[in-house]
């Protein structure tokens, strides 16, 4: 056991050393203890148990396993999920008329003589000549200033602008930690709400390929400020993909599913959201 004086002296001596020299002077036992400490620290760090040291990365949250099992047949009753009809009990192969002996000539000559005299076509029905239908394309009408009826959407936008100018100095007042990911409950609530408004394109060719990503920016009150399809070039080429993309966009813009149920004080956590609409599960694929 060293005396207090000795410890003080050691410390003042060490203060003048570089880190390297400090380590160099460590006795064996101290070195082992120190090494053990740092190993423990490293373990705790990786486990995320050290406050202030959780690694931050993109939250890629897979959908949580639902507690309530949704009976898929309620929503998309595709017949291949129905019970298969019970097969009839095996019947013995039916006895057939004996096949003709191989030497039997072919039934009709492959190139029969073309008909010499065909009966004349005769009138059996009234003539019904088809009138033509012609088409031409129209341009969208020119934009005209209509006297504006009170528009809910416009008023929401105005309030949002006010909110935004106020929200900026707030971060220091947040009680929750900006680096902790958004809680599972909130994510589930967002999913549930969007799912209410998403019309799945069923029956389209290759429906399983129609995974659409929508990148959104939200207003501080949780309503959608802007949303765009991530893969616009595919939407231009592929009419089925365009339909799926428009259907996803409608889910996002639908006033019935706007604003999203987000915790208003954690704006930075959900300000940018990318939604990935994947119909595979619903289509039973």
């Amino acid at each position: 056991m060293h005396s207090l004086q000795e410890i003080r002296a050691a410390i003042s001596e060490y203060r003048e050393l570089s880190l390297y020299e400090m380590v160099d002077r460590l006795p064996m036992r101290a070195g082992i203890t120190l090494s053990a400490f740092f190993h423990l620290f490293a373990l705790l760090l990786v486990a995320g148990a050290v406050p202030g040291f959780s690694p931050s990365y993109d939250f890629d949250i897979a959908p949580p396993i639902p507690v309530q099992v949704v009976n898929i047949s309620d929503v998309a009753n595709l017949p291949n999920m129905r019970q298969r009809p019970k097969p009839a009990p095996r019947k013995p192969a039916p006895a057939k008329y004996a096949p003709p002996p191989p030497s039997r000539p072919s039934r009709v000559a492959p190139e029969p003589v073309p008909e010499v005299s065909l009966p004349e076509p005769r009138q059996v029905a009234k003539p019904q000549p088809e009138p033509a239908v012609k088409q031409e394309t129209l341009e969208p009408p020119k934009q005209v200033e209509l006297p504006k009826a009170p528009d809910n959407f416009a008023s929401v936008l105005k309030t949002v602008e006010e909110l935004e100018s106020q929200s900026k100095p707030q971060p220091e007042n947040f009680t929750s930690d900006p680096d902790r990911p958004l809680s599972i409950t909130v994510i589930q609530a967002i999913q549930a709400q969007i799912e209410r408004c998403w019309a799945i394109p069923a029956g389209a060719r290759n429906a399983e390929d129609l995974v659409v990503e929508i990148s959104m920016v939200l207003n501080p009150d949780g309503s959608v400020r802007s949303a765009r399809i991530v893969n616009t070039s595919r939407a231009e080429r592929d009419p089925f993909f365009r339909t799926a993309a428009e259907s996803a966009l409608r889910a996002v813009y639908n006033p019935n599913c706007n604003p999203l149920p987000v915790p208003l004080e954690d704006y930075e956590k959900w300000r940018n959201i990318t939604l990935r609409f994947n119909p595979k599960e619903m289509l039973g694929l």
Binding site: V70, Q191, E268, N272, T274
Partner: peptide, 27 residues
């Protein structure tokens, strides 16, 4: 030792885009 202290210097802000899967909808 230096490696252990490295994470402290890389404090990234949590502004990355939140990705959410939507796998159910209606018909």
């Amino acid at each position: 030792l230096a490696l252990f202290f490295l994470p402290l210097t890389l404090a990234t802000p949590a502004h990355a885009s939140l990705k959410i899967d939507i796998t159910r909808g209606h018909a």
